[in-house]
Design a protein around this nucleic acid. Structure first.
Lengths: 135, 135
DNA sequence: CATAGTTGTTGCAAAATGCAATAACTATTT
DNA sequence: AAATAGTTATTGCATTTTGCAACAACTATG
């Protein structure tokens, strides 16, 4: 990482994932079961391949993601969350809830509705699920 | 706002504040009692004046901030949060907590320690405080 | 009328992003 | 082994955003 702008924890966090793409990759792994470059590339937001490589590299360097060779296919890499990455869950959930609340064109789906009913319960449940597959 | 990349609430939220500066301005208003251009400009992260103007304009257009003439000084403007802006509090708190947890060089100060002890309580308390001064 | 305070604007360089084409490597098929 | 397909990148170039420094417009104050 380049030098921090300040020692404010918010500023330091934004130094890492304060951009339009990083948290979407995290979302894909965290909530959509995606694990590979090609799956991230296929997401509806259409990230460019050079940006994707750059973000994966940064997130790996920050120890938010881990990159491994797929056991089933040696030409494929699998990305998974570390505990540090999994701990981004509450942030992702809060951002999702705010976005759904204030965007007419962002319908709450299954998870969004559960969050509206019982946010803390969802975070607790999902963080337990994530713990099973963190690296 | 430009066109949304998708109808995912996370993506839509990041379309609005997915950058390194917007949430720092929000932080200044929300947690540090700052209200004016010159105060934001003086923050330790050293935002450039053209970026600051741009972010304030965007945040106002998104109805996250409201800009008013200062009653005490007609050449001064005051920025305050709307309810939509105040509802970013849980996101800001979670980002602060994660940043403090994973950065050695980001000491928890008073608020950070309270968050570690009772995050939900802090959010509840601060959101009540904010409600008193939302526009 | 001079000065300071506040909120911008402008110009230019640097960095990040977006887009399209292509390449390297592996696995599979013929 | 040659051809094909799948996966993960790299490269070049145009566009956009950011960073930095200087300056300008407006308003209060003395």
């Amino acid at each position: 990482m380049e030098k921090a702008r300040s020692d404010c924890p918010i500023s330091c966090s934004l130094d890492v994932f304060g951009d339009k793409w990083s948290l979407l990759i995290i979302r894909d792994i965290m909530l959509r079961g995606k694990v590979s470059y090609s799956e991230f590339l296929a997401s509806e937001e259409k990230i460019a391949s050079n940006i994707l490589v750059n973000r994966l590299t940064v997130l790996e360097a920050e120890k938010i993601l881990v990159k491994e060779v797929s056991p089933a296919n040696k030409s494929k890499f699998l990305y998974s969350l570390t505990q540090k990455g999994a701990d981004l869950l509450p942030i992702v959930i809060e951002i999702m809830d705010w976005g759904a609340k204030y965007n007419e064109n962002c319908p709450r789906r299954e998870l969004g509705k559960k969050i509206k009913k019982d946010k803390a319960g969802v975070v607790k449940e999902l963080s337990q699920e994530l713990r099973k597959r963190v690296k």
